[in-house]
Structures are given as structure tokens and as C-alpha cells.
Design a binder for these strands. Structure first.
Length: 929
RNA sequence: AGGCACGUAGCUCAGUGGGAGAGCACUACCUUGACACGGUAGGGGUCGGCGGUUCAAUCCCGCCCGUGCCUACCA
């Protein structure tokens, strides 16, 4: 047996195992296997992406679920893939093209540009999937999919055509969100609103045929050029007489009607009069429809004023137009005043350009009828949302859903399968390129230039990846999938739409459970961003990074100097290599439901130490497992074995059982943090702190008389460690595999921990007597150590102890555990009496059960200090006694509280009084000295 | 504006209608034959504030203060 290095080094261990697992096909699920299926499809990251903490979190949580279920003998399938991220990817390649060749995509033409993007994707599109491998993700790579794959493209086309034929997709001239930088339409969800300081301009509109002026208030004076009405409240006395008359639109020669509209106008706001611009405002658009107003579009797709404005204002950007309009109004004496005003402005999610409402002919999905079944499925519990709080949000959004604009003026994506007839202009929607117009049989057809929203293809992901529209074996086995695990921020983008599409096309929900995790933010609770310099790159955590490397990377990412300073301050020594295991454990341990995860580097470091602790426990075990015969140990009849075990053996096996139970229960409920905590406690606080220490004498004993005990101890230690590894494996796959491989195993054991069985709760291993007895032993030992620390007695000094235990059971328990107590408390002598007073020269502690532990400290007993010690203890006990006595003295408590509670309190009081009495007597005795 | 969270030890966070917890940090002691990425012991909290329900509230309810997020509107 080769000796393991003293400190665990993840960088030496982690890279080895992934390949082994993959080569042995452990990640692959067979759709025909006669096992209960458990499937997760990955929420596909953007193909342009690079692993960030959000990815690391979902990767961790999903891998935990998959590895756990796989070990529970489910047919566990985790499907990997990426999405084509229309806008983001096209932007990346356009930028490169501009930088390297000084060309735009239009210079290259559609075909050539697409060829370039594909080339880019082939070269760079594997980055994120490779990074997921470093996280240890047991993804079924044979099933990897990309939203623009041939199969998925067919699915997208099929879905579009069917929805069109069924009347769920239509084309219409509507006001949509337009990003003039990306030159494409966006859905409502792709617009991010942020509060901005703006102004409210008060502008005078002369009333035609009168000297009156109607003052309107607006935040967008430039859109005045597209006004087609002015509105006031119909019941507003100030303006009622103007309704039905016309106003002269300033800076133009147009007359526009003054109308009354109670829905649009808030009498209290601004001046009580509103300009109506149906071409550039969503509310005004609706107002326009109510009053049959024309909608005038005054901007081009690039965001400049067009031919619909007077010549003097043509060709200006929105900002220029505003300046010019305001200046001219002022000159004309029509600008009444300017007030500061806060408003929220929509920005493009991808490029942060201000989004403009624009009239445009686009394709839409009629959402409400598709949402109805998705609402019902959640109401009926066919799909469960965890944490449950999100159900309300889901319902609210679904019930108020608006039609979804799905066409995008991009090149990278699924081209819309619609062809327009040169003769009649009508669209023909078809699966294959049509030769004749469906309306007039014309033969001159041109395909729609636009592509579909990336999220349209994502909505089909749970079944398109499994082969739909073909009726594949995969679909039959793995659909509906078991869990959709993702961040709550894409509940609407994705999860909701997948529910709609899944139910529509498959007639079944796409997943049984939706688990929404929290977002990873920095220690202060801020979103991680390059500008702030608070990004922690999971890869740096895994592999480590020097300060220079961190700074260089931040600079390349365009981080400002303030961000660099923050990095210098936070990581003066760089980031140590903690390994994927430590990162995963940290994320799991912090993934409490319904909270943001503030990622504290100290926590990750703490779990790196945890890995090291496991490593060293394994080192200890391996150094002491020489000669251990796992088959011989495993073949012993259980009852025979149980009879020979020590208290410590029975205790640790009982704790192991309880831990397995807790971990499984926690994972069933997606309580990753509780599962992690439970294993952590078992390994560190129980196995290492107590069992290993208690096992040492037997393990070190090589005498012939001790050989049976030696072997049994080896067996229990090996069992505890091996089982703990299996419990921990879904969380820390690498180190558990490395350690597990070295533990001697009975013959017939699988070749990898990842295909062993997950420890299940076995109630026959719970040993309450052992746990109670052990608690007493531990308390006794701690009492002695406490005295040692308070008297500052070196651990090297061997002490003698006298225990006075009135109760027979306690006396018997202690008496039976003399050996372990002598060893752990470092005693040379232990006397146990049924009654009596603490001997002179001892420090006395009263522990549970009224047991007095008297530690001999004669040579340095300090009467004052000892009295103080006792006084402190008494204060605590007396405070507690008063509280309990108060409760028990309350008649209504006795009358109304459940009997168990009353009994418990009575017991507590008795216990307390016993301890107080004993301490008091110690004190009096001491004072007499 | 509406909705939803959150406020617990110095920091990051668990938790529960009936005796306040973890990790990190802190203090003291310890190179004991797995581990100083360690061991032993310890200090530290009016569980945001004020009311209410209850025999009993950190937990349930209401109000207030503070923080964050989401949705909608904002002429």
C-alpha cells in the first residue's frame, strides 16, 4: 500500500477520474433499461458562454440529484446541450468581424456570415461544455444537443407550422420593443427596465380656432412629431369644453383632435392633458385603437427620424431630435416649463441600448389559450413548483400573459418557415419549401428573412432533445422528465413556456417538479459583475489563480480601475486551488431554499479543509487497515457481529444510519444544505472527533489476544468510511472516488463508487441504548477536559478522577466504559461510587443525570478560582430553573399544555435542581476548607 | 404603486409554537504516532422595533423601520 500524501491536493486527483467515468460509459443511460427513469434536461447555457457561478450552481445541484438517483438504481439520464443564443452569438461574431476585417455582416451577405458563425461555433462552442466536465458533471454526452441541430431545427419548424395551422401563431402589425443597436424586435421579457432621472416637458398646443392653449406634459418631446391626438379626462371641468375640437400640433401644420379618455388620462398627473402617440407608446397605441386614430411611425429601424416628420427634422437620432424639438418649441414660445422627473426606461437585455416601441409587422404566439393548460397542470399538482412560494408568481404571470413576439430580425437562428407570394403578398407556412402560394397558387415565393426567438426553440427543449416529432423510445422512457432545475430568474423565459409547449405538443407536462434555485451573488449581496470587480470565477476556485492572473483577466474583460482595486483588496494572495469538490460542497451547503446565495470565499476554503479532513481520515484508515479482510468481515452473521461490537462501534454505526436517513430525506425535499450539513457533521464531528480516537487502542494493538478486536475495529472503521464516501459522493465526486478506490472492498464490489448503491435508511442499525450511553461517556470526558483547560493543566499530565453516580444505570454505563474514558480524558485512575462527597483536592463538575465528575487537581487547586467556576455554573443553572419553575407554577400551563411537554418540563426542573443541589454542596464544602 | 422575500453571534447563513445553532473570525492552551487545511476548551446574540393571538412567540397575525427582488405604470 502506497502512503498517501499528507495534504489533499485536488489538482492532482480531480483531472484523473472524469475520463475514467466517461470511458466506462457510467454517464450513459439506456432508454431500454428496465429501471425506473429519472431524467433531467440541462437548462442549456448559451453557446457563447463561459462558466460562471450560476452555471456552477445548477451544475452542482443537478449532478447531485442525478448521481444520487443513479446510485439509487434509477435509470438516471442527464441530457447536456447548449442553445444558439441568437443575439449574443451574432453580436460576438459581428464584433470580431468588425475588428479583424472592418466589415459588417451585410458586407459578407447572409450565407457567408452564417458560415462564419458556424465556424466560430465549431471552434469556441465547446468551452462551456468542457467547463461543465471540470465541475464533475455526470452528463450523458452521447445525447448532447444544440438548438440549431438538424433534429431540433426540424422540431422547431414542425412546432411553428402546427401552431400556425391551429391558429396559435399569427402575423400582425403591432407595436413591439425594438432595439436599434441589434436592429431586431424583442419580446417583453427581453426588455429590462431601470429607473432613470429624466424631465417632464410642459408644452403648449394651440387650440384651433381659439386663443386657448392646451398644455400637455411629456417625457418624450421628440415623439410630438408623431402625435395623432391630445387626450384629457372626460370629466375634467378644466378641459371638458375642448373635447371634440382640434389642436394645432406644434412644429407641424397638422391638426389633431382633442379627445376624452378616462383610461389613459390621470387628472392628477402633470397638466391633466396628454399627447397621444400611437406609433411610439404602448398605452397610446391602445388609446389609438379605442378612438380609431392613425399611428404614425417617425423613426427608422436604425433609430433615426424618417420621412414622416417635417423636412427640417429628418435624419436625426432620437437624442438630436429631442434637442431640436425642445429648442424650436422654446423659440416658438410653446415650451411652458421643464420639471425633473423620474421614470423607468426599457433597455435591451443584451446590449443595454434604450428600447424603442416601434410599429412593425411581426409574428406572434397567441399565449393565453396555451397558458390555460399550463395553469391547470400546476393547480392539479401534475407539476410541483419548489419552493412553493414561486407558484403564486407563476400563476400571476400566466394569468396575465400577453402575446409573445417571436420573430427576430437576425440571421443566426431558425428561419421562419413562411414564404410570401409576389402576386398576393400572402404568407404560405410550410414544413418544406413550397412551390406554390397557398392562397393564389402563384409561383414566385420568397422566404421570410427573419428568424425565431431563441426561447422559442428552448421552449421545446424537454421533448425536442428526445427526438420529437418522431415517436422515439427516448421520449417514451424519459418524457415527462423528473425535474427542471434552474434559477428563478428564468421562470418566465423558459419554464413557463416549456410548460405551455410541452402540454400542447406532448399532452403531458414536461417535468414533474420545477426546482428553482436562488441566484449567486457576492458576499455583500450584490450581483456579480465585471464592472464591480466582484466576480468569482468558478474555474479560479477550482484551479487556483494568482493575483496577477486575476487582474489580467479582469483587465481583458474591460474592468475599470475601481474593480481592480477591489480584487487586490479581496484577494491579495490570489485564490488558492480548492478543487471542484470544495466548490460544489460550498454551493450545496449554501443552497438554502428561497434565498440568494452570498458566496463567501471563506466558506469555500472551509470546505477545502473539509476535503482535507476526509483525506486524512482516509490516510489514517488505510495506514491501519493492514491485514483487514473485507470478505471475512462481511461474511460474519449480523447477530454474531453485533454481540462483539464495542459501544463506540455500535454508536458510530447508529450515527451512520441516522445520517443516511437524514441525507436521503433532505435530498427528497431538495434541501441540499441540510443534506450537506448532515454529512459534514457525521464525518468530522462524529467519525473523526470521536470514533477514530476511540478506535486507536484497538487498531494499534497487534498482540495475538487483541487480534479479533483489531479486525472488528478495522471492519467498523472501513464500513463507516466507505459508507460515508458513498453518502458524500454526489456532493464531492472526485475525492470520494479517490478515497473509496483505496478502501479494501469485499469481492464483487463495482469498479467505481458512482455505480454502487446509495446508502439507504436501515432502522435495524439504530441503537438508542448506544447513543444514550455514548452521550454520557462524551459528557464525562468533556467535563474532565473542561477542568483541564480551566486549570491550565497540560494535556501531558495524567489525572485521576472520581465519579459519584447515584443512579444505577448511569453507574453501570460509566463503569462499562472505563477504558475509553481513561483514554480520551487521559486518566490513570477512575473510581466510581454510588454516593459520597467529592474528595478533597478535586474540582467537581455536575453533569447530566446528577453525576459528579471530580478531577484531582490538589497540587494547584485555587479556592477562589474554583468558587468562581462553580458560581458561574450555578448562575446559568439557576436562571434556567427560575424559567422552568415559573412555567410549572402557571396553572393554565399545567391545564392546557400537552402532557408530554409538562412532563418534560418537570423532568427538566428535577434534573436542574439535582445539579444545583450538588454544586451547592460542593461550594459549601470548598468554603469550609 | 402592487406583489414577494429578507432582517438571528463580528461576518456569511441555517433553524424551530415549548431548553438559541453551523462555518469563518476571536481568546487560551496544545508540534499527542491521520490531519496546524489540525486538536482541546472558551467568549459572544433584547432572534430589527412596537403591539396582538396563545398556557407558551425568535417562529403565527397586524403595524412600523430597514434591505433586496419581481411585476405594472409613469403624459
Amino acid at each position: 500500500m502506497t502512503e498517501l500524501p499528507k495534504a489533499y491536493d485536488p489538482t492532482q486527483v480531480e483531472p484523473r477520474w472524469y475520463r475514467v467515468w466517461q470511458e466506462n460509459q457510467f454517464f450513459h443511460a439506456d432508454a431500454t433499461a428496465p429501471k425506473a427513469p429519472y431524467a433531467i434536461v440541462i437548462p442549456p447555457p448559451n453557446v457563447t458562454g463561459s462558466l460562471h457561478m450560476g452555471h456552477a450552481l445548477f451544475a452542482t445541484l443537478q449532478d447531485i440529484l442525478i448521481r444520487w438517483r443513479r446510485m439509487q438504481a434509477y435509470n438516471a439520464m442527464w441530457l447536456p446541450g447548449t442553445d444558439h443564443a441568437g443575439i449574443a452569438t451574432q453580436m460576438v461574431v459581428e464584433r470580431t468581424l468588425q475588428r479583424e476585417e472592418g466589415k459588417s455582416r451585410h458586407d459578407l451577405g447572409r450565407e457567408e456570415f452564417l458560415r462564419r458563425i458556424w465556424a466560430w461555433k465549431e471552434k469556441n462552442g465547446h468551452r462551456i461544455t468542457e467547463q461543465l466536465k471540470q465541475m464533475g458533471c455526470s452528463l450523458d454526452w452521447e445525447r448532447e444537443r444544440f438548438t440549431l441541430d438538424e433534429g431540433l431545427s426540424r422540431a422547431v419548424c414542425e412546432a411553428f407550422v402546427r401552431l400556425y395551422e391551429e391558429g396559435f401563431i399569427y402575423r400582425a402589425q403591432r407595436l413591439i420593443n425594438w432595439c436599434s443597436r441589434c436592429t431586431t424586435a424583442l419580446s417583453d421579457l427581453e426588455v429590462e427596465h431601470s429607473e432613470t432621472e429624466g424631465s417632464l416637458w410642459h408644452i403648449a398646443y394651440p387650440v384651433s380656432g381659439s386663443s386657448e392653449r392646451l398644455i400637455v406634459a411629456t417625457t418624450r418631446p421628440e415623439t410630438l412629431l408623431g402625435d395623432t391626438a391630445v387626450a384629457v379626462h372626460p370629466e375634467d371641468e378644466r378641459f371638458r369644453h375642448l373635447i371634440g375640437r382640434n389642436a394645432l400640433l406644434p412644429l407641424t401644420d397638422r391638426q389633431i383632435p382633442i379627445l376624452g379618455d378616462a383610461q389613459l388620462v390621470d387628472r392628477e398627473f402633470g397638466t391633466g392633458a396628454v399627447k397621444v402617440t400611437p406609433g411610439h407608446d404602448f398605452n397610446d397605441f391602445e388609446t389609438g385603437q379605442r378612438h380609431q386614430l392613425p399611428a404614425i411611425s417617425i423613426f427608422t429601424l436604425e433609430g433615426r427620424t424618417n420621412e414622416n416628420v417635417p423636412t427640417a427634422y429628418r435624419g436625426l437620432t432620437i437624442v438630436e431630435a429631442r434637442q431640436r424639438v425642445v429648442a424650436d418649441l422654446e423659440t416658438a414660445g410653446l415650451l411652458v416649463k421643464i420639471e425633473p422627473h423620474q421614470l423607468s426606461v426599457g433597455h435591451c437585455q443584451r446590449c443595454e441600448t434604450v428600447v424603442e416601441p416601434l410599429l412593425s409587422l411581426q409574428w406572434f404566439v397567441r399565449a393565453a389559450p396555451l397558458a390555460a393548460p399550463a395553469i391547470e397542470a400546476v393547480e392539479l399538482g401534475k407539476t410541483k413548483i419548489v419552493p412553493e412560494v414561486w407558484t403564486k408568481t407563476y400563476m400571476h404571470w400566466m394569468r396575465n400573459i400577453k402575446d409573445w413576439c417571436i420573430s427576430r430580425q437576425l440571421w443566426w437562428g431558425h428561419r421562419i418557415p413562411a414564404w410570401y407570394c409576389a402576386a398576393c403578398q400572402e404568407p404560405t407556412v410550410a414544413r418544406e419549401t413550397p412551390t406554390r402560394c397557398a392562397h393564389c397558387a402563384g409561383t414566385s415565393l420568397r422566404q421570410d428573412e427573419d428568424v425565431l426567438d431563441t426561447w422559442f426553440s428552448s421552449a421545446l427543449w424537454p421533448f425536442s432533445t428526445l427526438g420529437w416529432p418522431a415517436e422515439t423510445r427516448e421520449l417514451k422512457t424519459f418524457y415527462p422528465t423528473s425535474v427542471m432545475e434552474t434559477g428563478y430568474d428564468i421562470l418566465f423565459f423558459w419554464v413557463a413556456r416549456m410548460m405551455m409547449m410541452g402540454l400542447h405538443f406532448m399532452k403531458k407536462v414536461p417535468f414533474r417538479t420545477i426546482f428553482l434555485h436562488a441566484l449567486v451573488v457576492d458576499e455583500q449581496g450584490d450581483k456579480m459583475s465585471k464592472v464591480k470587480g466582484n466576480v468569482i470565477d468558478p474555474l479560479d476556485v477550482i484551479h487556483g489563480a494568482t493575483l496577477d492572473e486575476l487582474l489580467n483577466k479582469a483587465r481583458e474583460g474591460g474592468a475599470p480601475e475601481t474593480a481592480l482595486d477591489r480584487i487586490r483588496k479581496q484577494f491579495p494572495e490570489g485564490i488558492p486551488a480548492s478543487g471542484a469538490d470544495a466548490l460544489r460542497f460550498a454551493l450545496a451547503a449554501m443552497a438554502a431554499q428561497g434565498r440568494n446565495i452570498r458566496l463567501a470565499p471563506a466558506r469555500i476554503e472551509g470546505y477545502r479543509h473539509f476535503a482535507n479532513k476526509l483525506w486524512n481520515a482516509a490516510r489514517f484508515a488505510l495506514l491501519n487497515l493492514e491485514g483487514f479482510d473485507p470478505d471475512r468481515y462481511a461474511d460474519q452473521p449480523q447477530e454474531e457481529l453485533r454481540a462483539k461490537l464495542t459501544l463506540a462501534d455500535r454508536w458510530i454505526l447508529s450515527r451512520l444510519q441516522a445520517t443516511a436517513e437524514e441525507v436521503n430525506r433532505a435530498l427528497e425535499g431538495f434541501q441540499f444544505n441540510e443534506a450537506a450539513q448532515s454529512i459534514y457533521r457525521f464525518l468530522w464531528s462524529e467519525l473523526c472527533d470521536w470514533y477514530i480516537e476511540l478506535a486507536k487502542p484497538a487498531l494499534y494493538d497487534r498482540s495475538p489476544e487483541g487480534s479479533q478486536r483489531h479486525h472488528l475495529t478495522q471492519g467498523v472503521l472501513a464500513t463507516a468510511l466507505e459508507t460515508a464516501c458513498r453518502l458524500l459522493h454526489p456532493f464531492m465526486p472526485y475525492i470520494t472516488e479517490e478515497v473509496w478506490q483505496q478502501i479494501p472492498q469485499p469481492s464483487g464490489t463495482p469498479q467505481s463508487i458512482m455505480i454502487t448503491l446509495y446508502p439507504m435508511a436501515d432502522s435495524t442499525m439504530v441503537d438508542e441504548e448506544a447513543e444514550a450511553s455514548m452521550a454520557l461517556v462524551q459528557e464525562t470526558i468533556v467535563a474532565v477536559r473542561n477542568v483541564r483547560a480551566e486549570y491550565n493543566i497540560s494535556p501531558a499530565v495524567v489525572l485521576t478522577v472520581t465519579i459519584i453516580a447515584e443512579h444505577e444505570l448511569a453507574r453501570a454505563r460509566i463503569d462499562a466504559q472505563r477504558g475509553p474514558i481513561l483514554q480520551m480524558a487521559r486518566l490513570s485512575e477512575l473510581q466510581v461510587f454510588a454516593a459520597g462527597q467529592p474528595p478533597a483536592g478535586t474540582a467537581a463538575c455536575v453533569i447530566a443525570g446528577g453525576i459528579i465528575v471530580c478531577v484531582s487537581v490538589a497540587w494547584q487547586i485555587d479556592k477562589t478560582a474554583e468558587l468562581q467556576r462553580i458560581a458561574k455554573e450555578l448562575t446559568k443553572l439557576e436562571r434556567d430553573r427560575a424559567q422552568v419553575a415559573g412555567k410549572l407554577g402557571n396553572a393554565s400551563f399545567l391545564a392546557r399544555a400537552p402532557r408530554e411537554i409538562v412532563e418534560k418540563e418537570q423532568q427538566r426542573l428535577a434534573e436542574n435542581e439535582e445539579r444545583i443541589a450538588k454544586l451547592e454542596s460542593s461550594r459549601q464544602r470548598l468554603q469550609r476548607l
